[in-house]
């Protein structure tokens, strides 16, 4: 079946590369009915206000991998900041103005011989207050189950092949203690400022399922 190639690739995908979210005119589900009911009861009982809900959604929407990328780029550029980040990633992130709440946050540094990956095998704990909500795959049975026992095979599914000599450390998050990966600064980036460096830092590179972009390659999604 012939396709207009460009059209085919954009069909059904939003600008983020994800399928368009469902509109509000799809049939009401039982769980949506419950969400509306719970929300309205909390508002009627003066426990929560509509404005609080809107503000919380706005605050969560504002969190994104760009925040983490700014932290990483500064750590690449500023050795003192990097030391503070590795000592207490929550405090170092707050120092940059990011509201990461009461979570304990630990940064694991990728080095020439060690690569770090984060997971939550028990549920879906993620450094959400820095990076925003986790990607769907992070919450899947497949990722949670396999990344601890066969991380190299999982990395290959993400298109990452590491030398056998590289030690892979997988960090299992808990509800109260979240991890973030501090990826290794790519070679050939000596002349770049922090803003340019931040452009190289992908979400997946801070989870450990990806590597930073190379400075001489065109930018790719993800």
């Amino acid at each position: 079946m012939p396709h207009d190639h460009d059209h085919f690739h954009h069909e059904g995908l939003s600008s983020s590369g994800h399928p368009y979210r469902q509109d509000n005119d799809t049939p009401l589900t039982y769980w949506q009915q419950m969400e509306i009911a719970v929300r309205e009861i909390l508002i009627e009982k003066d426990i929560i206000t509509t404005a609080e809900i809107a503000a919380q959604i706005e605050a969560m929407d504002a969190r994104s991998p760009a925040q983490g990328a700014a932290v990483v780029a500064r750590a690449w550029s500023d050795p003192d900041f990097k030391a503070r980040l590795l000592k207490d990633a929550a405090e170092a992130s707050r120092e940059m103005g990011f509201d990461i709440g009461p979570l304990k946050l630990i940064a694991m540094e990728n080095t020439a011989d060690t690569h770090n990956i984060i997971v939550c095998t028990l549920c879906s704990c993620y450094p959400r207050n820095l990076l925003g909500l986790p990607p769907d795959w992070y919450k899947t049975r497949a990722y949670r189950s396999r990344v601890v026992s066969e991380p190299r095979a999982v990395l290959r599914e993400f298109g990452v092949e590491l030398p056998q000599s590289t030690r892979i450390r997988v960090h299992d998050s808990t509800a109260d203690m979240r991890y973030i990966v501090l990826p290794a600064r790519p070679a050939g980036t000596e002349g770049l400022d922090q803003d340019a460096l931040a452009q190289l830092v992908t979400r997946d590179s801070m989870i450990g399922t990806g590597l930073p972009r190379q400075p001489d390659l065109p930018r790719q999604a993800g």
């Binding site: 095998t121 028990l122 189950s145």
Partner: peptide, 23 residues
């Protein structure tokens, strides 16, 4: 408690969160 259990390939499909999910 899934860590280390056998499972299939990681499904890479994502979706943008709908309003009811954000709420």
């Amino acid at each position: 408690d899934m860590g280390g259990q056998p499972a299939g390939p990681v499904a890479m499909e994502g979706h943008d969160f709908a309003l009811w999910e954000k709420r």
